[in-house]
């Protein structure tokens, strides 16, 4: 397993947000976490990337324990996190946003190559590279956020609600991009409220309910699960 969470507990001011979450992420494909608002999906991602301290439990990434590392050191290990709400830098240009993703990298030529690669993936960003990021549409901002994460040359990509607030046609475009990234060998942990979308693209899925994993299994199986159908797929 590339990433493994073992019995992770997280508290926000004494209130338990995660009550023993264990998750495994293999080194290819998409693993998804679905669940209602406040179930602990984003908190799980924040715990992995070091934004939220873990109260107990262990997080292992590629044979190394990472749950005590601060966020900027976790990135250095190869985990890129596209946070909820995209969190691009509004008063940086598109290109500057992308380049901050490569902050830790020292091989200049490689970074330039990857920038061209990101522009190849998102031609619209290339056209608007000198534009302030805050002037971009929601879909374009999501592309900036994903592109910025790719600029760190990650070995694992965490995506928090990439479909949030986007029109269906844009969501389809983002999904195609995510699938292309996975095909090129970068595994993805996808957090989604849109369970239909998540279960369609993922190979394995976890259902989070009030801070614990209530169900886990192959995405296709969960898609047919009665409880999942009723609670998350609305059928």
């Amino acid at each position: 397993m590339l990433l493994e969470l073992r019995d992770i507990h997280v508290h926000y001011n004494k209130v338990a947000a995660l009550k023993g979450v264990s998750i495994q992420v293999p080194s290819d494909g998409i693993v998804t976490m679905i669940g209602a608002n406040g179930a602990g999906k984003s908190t799980t991602l924040r715990a992995i990337s070091g934004l939220t301290p873990v109260t107990s439990g262990e997080i292992w990434f590629d044979g190394e324990r990472i749950d005590t590392l601060p966020a900027d050191k976790v990135v250095a290990r190869g985990i890129a996190h596209v946070p909820e709400g995209r969190r691009i830098f509004p008063d940086l240009t598109v290109e500057e946003n992308l380049r901050t993703g490569a902050f830790l990298r020292t091989q200049r030529a490689e970074v330039e190559g990857d920038l061209e690669d990101v522009f190849g993936r998102f031609p619209r960003l290339k056209e608007r590279r000198r534009q302030w990021a805050k002037t971009m549409s929601g879909g374009e901002q999501q592309m900036v956020a994903i592109g910025r994460a790719l600029m760190s040359k990650p070995r694992l990509l965490l995506l928090d609600e990439p479909s949030m607030g986007l029109a269906p046609v844009i969501i389809q475009e983002i999904v195609r991009i995510i699938e292309a990234i996975v095909k090129q060998g970068v595994p993805v942990v996808l957090v989604e409220q849109n369970a239909e979308l998540a279960l369609n693209v993922a190979s394995y899925a976890y259902v989070l309910e009030t801070g614990t994993v209530s169900l886990a299994g192959a995405a296709d199986d969960l898609h047919e699960n009665e409880h999942v159908k009723r609670a998350y797929l609305g059928v």
């Binding site: 934004l51 966020a71 900027d72 691009i88 830098f89 008063d91 940086l92 901050t100 830790l104």
Partner: peptide, 16 residues
């Protein structure tokens, strides 16, 4: 500038 705009997002880029 990134830190001034969003410290948490900056940390996610490896910026200390």
């Amino acid at each position: 500038r990134a830190c001034a705009q969003d410290r948490e997002a900056a940390a996610l880029q490896g910026i200390s």
